[in-house]
């Protein structure tokens, strides 16, 4: 508890967002996910190749704990018939239930580009990772 409580009453109705410190950059290496217990479902903070992204831990399809899913790539058609290849390994997230895939950076569903998981901004300041927009 802080000593001086901010006077929230005077600050409304200005829309403000809160932020929370997730950890130090070195504690959140590339490929890691940290589920921050904020909101009803928690928020997954991902380090994708040194860039940080955050998604609600709730699948828009059936409500699964999305961020418990596997970080993976995307299978796309190859150059010729009957060919396929894997691209963007580490940039996609697969839901632990029905396997829906989402791009971590945008929250967009691979199979349904018009659908997306809610994302949050993540800042890195002096080596500290901060989840914003709460």
């Amino acid at each position: 508890m802080t000593q001086a409580e901010p006077n929230l009453a005077t600050e409304r109705p200005v829309k403000r967002t809160e932020s929370v410190v997730v950890g130090r950059v070195e504690e959140l290496p590339p490929g890691s996910v940290t589920i921050v217990p904020r909101g009803k479902f928690g928020i997954g903070v991902y380090n994708v190749g040194g860039s940080f992204f955050a998604l609600t831990n709730y699948c828009l399809h059936r409500g699964a704990p999305l961020c418990r899913g596997q970080v993976t790539g995307k299978v796309v058609a190859g150059d010729g018939p009957y060919e396929s290849k894997m691209v963007g390994v580490g940039e996609f997230l697969r839901c632990p239930w029905h396997g829906w895939e989402f791009e971590i950076a945008t929250g967009r569903a691979v199979a349904y580009p018009e659908k997306a998981i809610r994302t949050y901004p993540v800042l890195v300041e002096n080596g500290t990772v901060i989840l914003e927009g709460l």
Binding site: A64, Q70, R94, P96, W97, H98, G99
Partner: peptide, 10 residues
Amino acid sequence: IPPVQTLRRD
């Protein structure tokens, strides 16, 4: 075998 996983990861 499904490409995703046969069992719930969670």
